[in-house]
């Protein structure tokens, strides 16, 4: 399968897509977005400084048609969802979003109903556009760099006015091996401080449920779940989070969930490996102290 990856220059994001590409065939080609070296080696690589997906559609569609790509791989991110539908419609190609499993015979799986069901599809048409859900595939190590051909965007229609990176202290949520998430049960924005302290000691990142985000206690980029970040840490601490299915959808691949919740009947315990039924005010400080003692 002749495959093209379109992705921002971020090794993990590209690496995951390379893994998917290799399931379907040889190492795919890459259209790398953004500035800097293109990590990894590819038969062909293109580079485009533009990161507004909406501006890429025309050029990318031409490229796909010209070079006869059969599979286009994107991550299920803002970038992917912004371009997938339009490319598909332009190329009359099937589009499957949020894919979590890919087989060489072109069957793929994607979750439905907030992860409560999983559908399997057999792709018949070609080319096909897939957006791959993050963290479901082990990122392929990217060795070396590839000299990329310049890919230009003609007459961009959308202009970037300003960009605001949300400060994520220390480790980034999606890369973190350990995540400490707080929910509505945290009670206030200030209370997230203890989670930050705990995450710092564990060299992890702080996440939040949408409950906490809706309350304005945590920024939207910290949100974990079906509609936030999909994360796959080794340990996921859920503090004051009830465990709604949409939240669980974001931690489906967490290896071990530790739930701290004062409600013994909270749904989170159904997903958790370890549970502590108590007010987190009592437990988290004790845990922080235990971590301190170890250091």
């Amino acid at each position: 399968m002749k495959t093209l990856i379109i992705e921002k220059i971020e090794p993990k994001r590209i690496g995951e897509l390379v893994t998917v590409g290799r399931i379907l065939g040889e190492t795919p080609d890459l259209l790398a977005l953004g500035e800097g070296e293109v990590p990894g080696t590819y038969p062909r690589a293109y580079q485009c400084p533009e990161t507004i997906a909406a501006n890429l559609v025309d050029g990318v569609a031409d490229l796909i048609q010209r070079d006869g790509y059969q599979v286009v791989l994107l991550s299920a991110t803002t970038l992917g969802s912004e371009i997938a539908g339009r490319l598909g419609a332009r190329l009359k190609a099937p589009v499957l979003s949020e894919v979590i499993e890919v087989k060489p015979d072109m069957t793929v799986k994607r979750p439905l109903y907030g992860g409560k069901a999983v559908a399997e599809y057999k792709i018949q048409g070609n080319p096909v556009i897939l957006t791959i859900r993050r963290k479901y595939f082990e990122p392929a190590p990217l060795e070396g760099t590839t000299a990329a051909a310049v890919f230009n965007v003609e007459s961009p229609s959308v202009v970037l006015l300003s960009e605001e990176q949300v400060q994520t202290q220390g480790v980034r949520l999606e890369d973190a091996e350990i995540i400490v998430s707080g929910g509505r049960g945290m009670g206030s924005a200030d209370n997230f401080e203890v989670l930050r302290e705990m995450a710092g000691l564990l060299r992890g990142a702080v996440g939040a449920s949408r409950g906490a985000v809706d309350e304005g206690w945590a920024s939207q980029t910290m949100q974990v779940g079906q509609t936030g970040n999909i994360v796959a840490p080794a340990v996921y601490f859920a503090v004051g989070i009830s465990g709604a299915s949409q939240h669980l959808a974001g931690i489906a691949n967490a290896k071990c969930v530790v739930a701290v919740n004062k409600d013994e009947e909270a749904n989170i315990f159904k997903r958790a490996r370890f549970g502590v039924v108590c007010d987190y005010h009592k437990f988290i400080p004790a845990l922080i102290q235990a971590l301190r003692e170890e250091q």
Partner: peptide, 13 residues
């Protein structure tokens, strides 16, 4: 636009 690592202001007509 809210994306994974922050937000950005975009303009178009």
């Amino acid at each position: 636009q809210n994306h994974e690592s922050g937000s950005r202001m975009l303009q178009f007509s």
